[in-house]
Design a protein around this nucleic acid. Structure first.
Lengths: 337, 337
DNA sequence: TTGAAAGCGCTAACAA
DNA sequence: TTGTTAGCGCTTTCAA
């Protein structure tokens, strides 16, 4: 793009000053119809498009927001991103997406990147609980809200569901069906939500007088393959669990896959329950029992709150801390023992 | 962010000129170690981050690319976006995503938005074949490559698969299994890829001496619900088809859902075959026979080509037109009649 | 109703 | 090795 046409070019050709061009661009009211029309004509003629970069520089607004997810190939994140993008468009914001791959270093790197690019606000869907960059930015008054994740900071902004309760809901359901041996695909504990779900799992076990078995908990990374293998190992055990709870639907799918690979019947031989309620969970051939996070609502609330923050010219304000209710969605992968 | 700290602030505090600060920021070699260290210290002390907006203004590079998809909630697009984001990160580009919802007006609107924001290049995954904006931009030398879609322009840049061949592969497979009555979920014809697949379907029918039935082709929009209903209607017909080919896996899933809702067995009562090979297609419980688009390769090639275009300071060059080979992936939703 | 001019925060040519 | 200065393309006072 060498031949970029600028407002100045338009001005010259239209025989007005560049500030007049700027005024018609910004719908400034007191312009002679004649002048405006002329300018508009030239704009069209020259194919001028206003340079938003230059504009952003003076306005100190980019009308774009950053979204950081842990793994965009996980449908939960992809669907969340979809909702956020769709809503952002309504408010005339663009969203730029970074993917941490659940790597701690990437998180801060991408946050810095966003700050440098001067996005108006950031949504983080995969905040490690101990991240200090987030806290620091937030304290500086930068609009930032955590989505389905949180950090160890009383004052952080976040929109989450009650994770402990969600996990309990799941365990309770299983216990009601008669299960006494319930394994758990927990995932890494660096995420607060992950950790809280684990707590819920443990507490529920305790409440029902069920023993907690270290070996029945997978605390590794969110890897389809690894969970698949772990599940196979689990199901090969003499006293294998009769039910498996997974920290996400994605991981539940891995569990189901593994069970199927061993010719185990779900829910006949094994009950499985997920977390998220991704779209695929309701598919007839999957029919995954799961805990709904109200993803759609969670995502739109998050965006809405972020935009509020952006608009209210951020001073340190009351933290936004919204906790939604989890909901048990019973489908076809759980049955009484 | 009122208290933004600028390079000038750093300069003052470090007792150097602002251009020196700029130099250390850009790793300019001939700086006294002493000066550099001092500047670096102050930068750290003040928590300075370089304003990339200002930088972009002078550099005329934003290091971000725009990605336009038709429907981010369709796993094919989501997975494609994932690959593009992951690769872009390697090259230090951000990607900003817009979602047209398959609406013609949105396409041009978002293209304009991207041009205004001065992204360095654009990938369009859902180009309507008659769009003139794309052609015009391309002719101006703007880096733009079409992904899995194309327009009616000999000189457009695109990366696609051989859609006609793909559709034929699918029909052939079905015919080999003994199917003679094959319906087709085609989707809207405003997309060239959609249209070509339809042609492939028709041609294959012809080649096998099978009649083409207008009523057995769904030409409406990409709507899960509508395809679901259409399929139910189809399967209620006296002489219902024994196989259904869908223009995408997403639509194939709708077909399967509809069949299941009528207690039809797949593939016993109905064979179904998709297009895309989304990740879910290989799930044990879905096992969808489909035509692979080599999404991963297609996406990374597209990005790579785009970045090439960006780097080679775009003059009108030889069009990039890459056609990948489709591949039939046989799984569990197709069987002999 | 319009123009002139300053300034947003940076890079880079030129000079010293 | 470093500082001065002139832009990048816009918005926005201030004056006219």
């Amino acid at each position: 793009m060498n031949g970029r046409v600028t407002a100045d070019d338009v001005a010259k050709k239209a025989g007005v000053s560049q500030s007049t061009v700027s005024r018609v661009l910004n719908n400034y009211p007191h312009i002679k119809k004649n002048t405006r029309d002329k300018v508009l004509m030239v704009i069209d003629e020259l194919g001028f498009t206003r340079d938003e970069v230059a504009r952003s520089l003076v306005e100190k607004k980019t009308r774009s927001i950053g979204l950081i997810v842990g793994d965009i190939s996980n449908p939960f994140f992809a669907e969340s991103a979809g909702v956020i993008i769709a809503n952002a468009q309504k408010f005339n914001y663009d969203v730029v997406i970074c993917n941490t791959n659940h790597d701690d270093e990437n998180l801060d790197k991408y946050i810095n990147n966003f700050v440098g690019k001067r996005v108006d606000g950031i949504i983080i869907a995969s905040a490690h609980r101990h991240d200090s960059k987030i806290k620091q930015l937030h304290e500086r008054g930068f609009p930032i809200v955590l989505y389905n994740s949180s950090i160890d900071d009383q004052k952080a902004n976040y929109v989450v569901i009650d994770n402990i309760k969600g996990a309990k809901l799941a365990v309770n359901h299983l216990v009601e069906l008669g299960h006494k041996s319930i394994a758990y695909i927990a995932g890494p504990f660096k995420y607060l939500s992950t950790y809280l779900r684990f707590e819920g799992y443990q507490e529920a076990l305790l409440q029902h007088g069920l023993p907690y078995k270290q070996d029945f908990v997978y605390k590794g990374e969110f890897s389809y393959q690894k969970v698949y293998e772990y599940t196979q190992m689990l199901l090969n055990l003499e006293n294998r669990p009769t039910a498996i709870l997974a920290v996400s639907d994605q991981m539940a799918l891995a569990v189901m896959d593994a069970a199927a690979s061993m010719n185990l019947n779900i829910p006949g031989d094994l009950s499985v329950i997920g977390f998220d309620d991704i779209r695929m969970a309701s598919n007839q051939f999957i029919g995954l029992t799961t805990i709904s996070q109200q993803m759609e609502e969670m995502a739109s609330i998050t965006l809405e709150k972020l935009i509020n923050l952006i608009d209210t010219d951020h001073g340190p304000s009351v933290p936004i801390q919204i906790i939604l209710e989890p909901e048990l969605i019973i489908r076809k992968t759980t049955a009484s023992i």
